[in-house]
Write a protein that binds this DNA or RNA. Structure first.
Lengths: 232, 232
DNA sequence: ATACTGAATTTTGAATTCAAAATGCAAACG
DNA sequence: CGTTTGCATTTTGAATTCAAAATTCAGTAT
């Protein structure tokens, strides 16, 4: 009978059909953060429509969303431009990132299990190795994974979402090429302290470390931007 | 000569012509926070288009933006529904609000001038008076003005924007009708402490007070929601 | 009577169309 | 020779149109 068949059917997650505009939001975000669309330039709506073979409707919906994220600026009747990243922007964004990461750290200490800590330990080891080899690219990559892992461990999707939105806004500063040896060493030391606090589940201390870590990072990035006018 | 005329022209702020979709975002936000569009119901796209005499294009753009703000949920091919506000949501949002307000408080202490403090003192007096008269509506109103004034004094538009987005998300809980006398008294005491810290420009203390203030508020709101199933 | 089937209707996503605004450009004027 | 003015072109905002998907509902079979 029908009953049996119905109960034997497992509940699978529904096939995710994404809307065009959702897809576009992601694609455009990449274009901007990767630097293909440079700060200050007008977003070529028509050209992008051709490129992705979509009409202007979903493209414009995507631009509205990106505007809200702060990646582009929408001037009525004059289209979209990629927002410039100024030093003032960094001074606005980094302190916020700081308190959000601190909160994430606190929550992570409350919720994380040993397996979670172990995972972060592995990322940390990876990062330390990159530091030894002066592999800046690899260092940044595992560094990001650590911060994302902490955020995930906090178990607060809203928080994680806000963090990634802010991170996206400043990622464009391709400061990757710029980090003094002294600062780099300091950053690694800060990460050691983080890991220790996390092992001990000391949320307050981890939060404080993360916040100053971000403050220092802000100074570093501002410094890099000051030298490289192309991002401003 | 032309020079003279040109220099005599003052630089005025440009006439703001808002796009339809921008206007709609605000209107819809009000509909949702004021409760005309109740949590859980499907957003009647067609009806709203008729109501505001616009076509579906700007309406859908507005819904995309609201979805990103978390006020509506967009399911592909199934339209928009007003997001329900669950206790879990509050547990996510309030801690974030807490650290953002704390940061705003810290920054405000750094930047605010005496006139700014005086303005907040006035709101505070107003609020205290409402408390004496047990005027809950008025109390909430001046309460909100105080928090907004602190945020404004922080001088960080990004921060203020994030705060108002989060506030909008939880404002719908019309917990206005629910606040125990004991909690109310406590809240007023917390506000007294805030004002004192602000007068003394003690950012760290103000931040800490704001954060616990929000934590307490969260407990109160959760309590109210627990009783009133219509919001959940 | 109840549960399934399938066609009609409605709703949604996206392309196209249309009007208004901005931009570019060249001719006219000082 | 440099400005300014008016026109043509392009770009933008919004309405309309069209196709695909979901929903509704009547009819059928069990």
């Amino acid at each position: 009978m029908a009953e049996v068949a119905r109960e034997s059917l497992e509940l699978e997650r529904p096939i995710v059909r994404r809307s065009l505009h959702d897809e576009l939001v992601e694609r455009l975000r990449v274009l901007i953060t990767e630097g293909e669309l440079e700060p200050g330039v007008k977003v070529p709506e028509k050209a992008l429509c051709d490129r992705y073979a979509v009409s202007r409707t979903p493209m414009r919906e995507a631009l509205k969303v990106l505007a809200r994220e702060g990646l582009v600026e929408l001037v009525p009747n004059r289209g979209a431009t990629v927002t410039r990243l100024t030093v003032a922007d960094l001074d606005e964004v980094f302190p916020i990132m700081g308190v959000l990461e601190a909160l994430a750290g606190e929550l992570a200490c409350k919720n994380i299990d040993d397996a979670g800590v172990a995972k972060i330990e592995r990322h940390h080891a990876q990062m330390a190795q990159c530091y030894e080899q002066r592999d800046l690219k690899g260092y940044f990559s595992s560094n990001q994974e650590i911060h994302e892992a902490i955020s995930a461990a906090a178990g607060n999707p809203t928080l994680t979402g806000m963090q990634s939105a802010l991170a996206g806004r400043i990622r464009r500063a391709r400061y990757l090429a710029n980090m003094s040896d002294a600062r780099w060493e300091e950053a690694v030391a800060e990460h050691e302290a983080m890991l220790k606090a996390l092992r001990e589940r000391d949320g307050t201390r981890l939060g404080a470390i993360l916040r100053t870590h971000l403050e220092n990072k802000c100074a570093t990035v501002k410094d890099a931007i000051g030298r490289d006018r192309s991002t401003a």
